[in-house]
């Protein structure tokens, strides 16, 4: 406790950074839930595949150093696109293999849940058998230089990259869903699926698009995770997936801006929980806050608003 004051600023900086990754993950859960009323438990593996995709891109480009200037931009563009493509494809693939056949047969939501868990195990084991169960290190592609200080906290280049990229992606997604014709389709299905079909919305295409968008966000999260933590593993998505789901519920599941709020809130609650009560209490504090928020606001901080949005 006596050291707490000196940890306030570092906790804010670190909580914002991890919160940005949680928020990107939360978007995947929230989009799918908004449209299908379904928690996609295979989303953690969508993230995992993204980390491997960015790692393999680095291997393919023979990048095991921190590139500078124009090369750095090229490398980051390459690993971002690779991770977004891989995660997006896996997310759409999961929908096609695990959810669509069940949906066509009007199966129960429990069947969907089991199907999602099955996909999750399948993808984990494929990667574990192919690439082993040990941590696989990333090369350092971004030098962790201190750029500036906030209070007594150092703000490093990788933190700026994580928070900046996450905010940009969330802004683009928000504009896409709220400002384009395709986005209107998503909102229409979220609001009332059967009416949307009667109005001429192709529901299968909307669902595919929703999974694709969630996957792309998970891919960006995966690229940022790889750059920031510099490791991956077959089960790397598990904890991040739980946190992303928690953030989505905290912010209001089904609500895109809620995912953003929930992600940053969860990141900050965790680092402050750790700073005040030491590390073994992080999860206790985080989930106590979640329960308290849900007691007073059962639909999360911002509420479930995707389906109520007006076009």
């Amino acid at each position: 406790m006596h050291n707490f004051v000196s940890q306030i600023w570092p906790s804010i900086v670190d909580g914002t950074t991890t919160g940005a990754i949680y928020a990107l993950m939360a978007l995947g859960y929230t989009l799918v839930y908004g449209v299908l009323r379904l928690i996609n438990f295979a989303h953690s593996e969508v993230f995992m595949v993204g980390t491997f995709a960015s790692l393999f891109t680095l291997h393919a480009l023979h990048i095991n150093y921190a590139p500078g200037g124009i090369e750095a931009i090229g490398v980051f563009a390459a690993i971002t696109i690779a991770a977004m493509a891989a995660s997006g494809l896996v997310a759409v693939g999961v929908e096609y293999v695990a959810y669509r056949p069940l949906r066509k047969r009007n199966s129960s939501s429990l069947a969907n849940l089991i199907s999602a868990i099955g996909m999750s195990f399948f993808l984990q084991e494929v990667f574990a058998l192919r690439y082993g169960r040990d941590l696989i290190p990333f090369p350092r592609i971004l030098l962790k230089n201190v750029l500036f200080h906030i209070g007594n906290a150092e703000v490093r280049s990788d933190m700026v990259l994580v928070v900046g990229s996450a905010l940009v992606m969330m802004f683009i997604l928000d504009r896409f869903v709220n400002g384009t014709r395709l986005g209107r389709g998503i909102r229409a299905v979220a609001q009332d699926a059967s009416t949307a079909v009667l109005m001429g919305v192709n529901i299968d295409r909307v669902i595919t698009l929703t999974f694709l968008l969630g996957g792309i966000m998970a891919g960006v999260a995966a690229m940022l995770y790889g750059t920031f933590y510099e490791v991956t593993q077959y089960n790397i998505g598990f904890v991040i997936g739980i946190k992303g789901f928690t953030a989505a519920v905290l912010g209001g599941i089904g609500n895109i801006r809620g995912a953003l709020v929930g992600g940053f809130a969860l990141g900050l609650v965790e680092t402050f929980g750790g700073a005040i009560f030491t590390a073994q209490w992080i999860d206790v504090v985080a989930f106590s806050v979640l329960v308290l928020v849900l007691l007073f606001r059962p639909t999360g901080i911002l509420g479930e608003s995707l389906q109520r949005a007006r076009a």
Partner: peptide, 19 residues
């Protein structure tokens, strides 16, 4: 401190050690 060996982020532990 006791950390969760599966957690990705140890920043609060790192901050506590630093301070």
């Amino acid at each position: 401190q006791s950390v969760d060996p599966n957690a990705p982020d140890y920043s609060s532990t790192v901050n506590a050690i630093q301070s």
